Structure formats: structure tokens, C-alpha cells
Amino acid sequence: MVKVAIHHAVSPYCTVVPSSSDLMNSRPPSDMLKVAWNLAWYGGIDQVLEQNGHPGINTPPEFLENLMLSPVDITILKTTNVAKGLQDCLVSITEATSHSVVSSTLARMRLYLLNDKLALKRGTGSSISTLHDLEWQTALSRFLLVLPACIEDEKLLADVLAFLSKMLIAQRDSTDTRDLNLLLEFLLRQETSPLMNLLLQTGSPAQGEMDEIQTLVRQKLQKELIGFFNSILQSLTSVTNRKCLLLAGPFRTQLSLKLLQCLRITNAPHFYGLPALERTLRGMVYVTAVPGWTLRSTTEDPYTLCKKYLTGLLEVISSFYVEWGGNAMSFMGKGVTKSAVICLLQLSYEMITQAKDKV
């Protein structure tokens, strides 16, 4: 007799859980009932967190023990509530005693921004509006005041700049310019401009494992720094606030001077690198995109600044097609060439409009 293989009506590997008459013995229904009971008892999640955040407050006697929230439940409620979660993050940053605590907290805050992006959540109730009410600058501004003194400081500053860039991107379509005004005032208020001076930071040749790690950290910091400045410049393209536009002029001019110095350092034969050169030129594209970016310099007149930009950009293009011809056809080489050409086009317009008598 031929036996044909057939499927079982019920899989022999299926585990059948016997139905329970008491749903409290099952974990998911029990957790749902505990949360629903506490929310109804205290009248909302804010009252639940306030009640359970004070150990001295006793639970009412008619409260069953299996309905009391555990510390894990309280932590979950704090995390899922945007206002309480972000407030705990800012408090954690303010009271942090190590770099790792601040970095992990910033990662949590970026998750709130990512959650809003995925849920298409904007306006009231979003993480950005909540951060406005909590005054994030009190906790984060201290990391932007001084230059990093060690490799751990550089890592932390890169994380702070990454979060600020995400925050600016998240509110790019908003008409609220409070954060943008605050950052521009902060950058222009400092005479030494520590953040802009970091663009000119160069590294020594790598010697040993520690120097290689420091080089990688410094490259990440440079990437986040230029990305932060580019985020500010992109946000300024759709701004109509008068104060913000007034601050934008000096910021563009100061940044253009720093990027020009950075281009000379990056394009030097002893410090040649496509990633750094590409980041610098991308920043120049955003700086030169708005007419009048040469007008606010206290050390250079518009014509001289345009002439220096023209010389630097022509050196980049000529070096790519003469000295390093092979790099011009690479992926990054094409990006460098494209950014340099866009800068030249925008520079030509600036020279025509701002230096008519000398061109």
C-alpha cells in the first residue's frame, strides 16, 4: 500500500494553553487592568506619575495589592509620556556625572524625535513643542561654551550637535523660530566662536591605536559640526522672522570665512582627504546660496572675499583634474566637483551683484 504524506489537522508541536477563569493570572490582561485601574483611580497619567513619584504618599486601603503599579510599570509610563520622559532626560543631563550618561540620554531624546517623525506628529503635543516648554537650552548650552579638552569631550560634543541638528530638521516646516534665534544669538554672542574654530582643528599623524581612535572621533566631530551649521543654514531659507533674518547675515559671513580657512587646510597636500573636502564644499554651497553673504564681514570687503573664494574653488577643481585626476571619477570625487561648480555659479552671481565696480 502506498502511503501519501499529508499534513496534520493540528500541529503536533502546537502548545495548547488551558483557558483560565481568572484573567489576572495572565500577564498581558493583568498589566492592562493595572494601568487602566490606576489611570481611572487617579484621573490621568500625570496624577499617576505624581502619586507614585512620592514614596511618602500611601496607597488607599481599598487598593488591592495586585493592582499596584511596580517600579517597572512607572518607568514605562514615564517613558511613554512625552512631557515626563523629556523632562526626566533634561534632569538626567543636568545632574549627569559622566559623559556616558549624557550620551545615552541624548540617544533617548533622539528616539522621541524619530517617533514623532514616524507618526507624522507635529504641533501641540509633539516632542519639539514639549522641548520649548521645558527650556532645553538650560541643560545643553553648557556643552557648547568651551572647546573639548579630551577625546571623551569630543565624543560628547558630537552627540550634542547631532541632537541639535535633528531638532532643527524636525521643526524646519514650523513657523516657530525660537530655537533658531537662540542658536544664532549663542553663536554670534561669543567673541572667540569656539564651535566655528573647531572647523580649523587639524589632527597630527596617527601613531598607535589611541591616535587612530582620536582621529576617527575628530572626523565624526567635524562631520556633525558642519552638519549642524548646514541645518541652521537650511532652516534659514524659509524664515520670515525679522530678528532671525537680521542675525542670519553676520552668521553666514563669519561661517564663510571659517569655511574658506578650512578649505585651505583640507586641500593642503599633507592633509588631503575626500570626505573632509566634500563636507567643507557642501557647507560652502549652503553659505553662498543666499545673495549678500559677503556683506557682513568686519575684516574683508565683498570683492576681496569673493576673490579668495574664487581662487580656492579653482584650486580644488584644477587639482582634481590635474594632480589627482583619478579621484575626479570616484563617487566622492564627483560630489566634490559638483559642489565646487555650484559654489562657482553662486559666487559669480554674488560678484556681479555686490562688486559691480571691480568685476
Score class of each variant (00 low, 15 high):
Trp37Arg: 13
Asn38Lys: 08
Asn38Ile: 09
Asn38Asp: 13
Tyr42Val: 09
Gly44Pro: 09
Gly44Met: 07
Gly44Thr: 09
Gly44Asp: 07
Ile45Ala: 02
Ile45Met: 07
Asp46Arg: 06
Asp46Trp: 02
Val48Tyr: 03
Val48Ile: 09
Leu49Arg: 02
Leu49Ser: 03
Glu50Asp: 14
Glu50Leu: 09
Glu50Ser: 11
Asn52Phe: 06
Asn52Met: 06
Pro55Lys: 00
Pro55Ala: 00
Asn58Pro: 01
Pro60Trp: 03
Pro60Ser: 10
Pro61Glu: 00
Pro61Trp: 00
Phe63Glu: 00
Phe63Gly: 00
Leu64Gln: 05
Glu65Ile: 06
Asn66Leu: 09
Leu67Lys: 05
Leu69His: 02
Ser70Glu: 09
Pro71Ser: 03
Pro71Glu: 01
Val72Cys: 02
Asp73Met: 07
Asp73Ile: 10
Ile74Met: 08
Thr75Pro: 00
Ile76Arg: 01
Ile76Asn: 02
Leu77Ile: 05
Leu77Ser: 07
Leu77Lys: 04
Lys78Phe: 09
Lys78Cys: 14
Lys78His: 12
Thr79Asn: 09
Thr79Ala: 08
Thr79Arg: 04
Asn81Lys: 05
Asn81Arg: 05
Val82Lys: 05
Val82Met: 07
Val82His: 01
Val82Asp: 04
Ala83Pro: 13
Leu86Cys: 08
Leu86Trp: 02
Gln87Thr: 11
Gln87Ala: 15
Gln87Trp: 05
Gln87Arg: 14
Asp88Asn: 14
Asp88Gly: 09
Cys89Phe: 03
Val91Met: 15
Ser92Tyr: 03
Ser92Lys: 12
Ile93Pro: 08
Ile93His: 06
Thr94Tyr: 13
Thr94Met: 15
Glu95Pro: 11
Ala96Asp: 12
Ala96Phe: 05
Ala96Val: 04
Thr97Trp: 06
Thr97Pro: 02
Ser98Asn: 13
Ser98Met: 06
Ser98Asp: 15
Ser100Asn: 10
Val101Trp: 01
Val101Arg: 05
Val102Cys: 08
Val102His: 01
Ser103Val: 11
Ser104Pro: 13
Thr105Pro: 11
Thr105Gly: 01
Leu106Ile: 06
Leu106Arg: 02
Ala107Thr: 14
Arg108Ser: 12
Met109Ala: 00
Leu111Asn: 02
Leu114Ser: 14
Asn115Tyr: 00
Asp116Lys: 00
Asp116Pro: 02
Lys117Ile: 03
Lys117Val: 05
Leu118Lys: 07
Leu118Met: 04
Ala119Gly: 06
Ala119Arg: 06
Leu120Cys: 11
Leu120Gly: 07
Leu120Val: 11
Lys121Tyr: 08
Gly123Ser: 08
Gly123Pro: 10
Gly123Leu: 07
Thr124Cys: 11
Thr124Trp: 02
Ser126Pro: 13
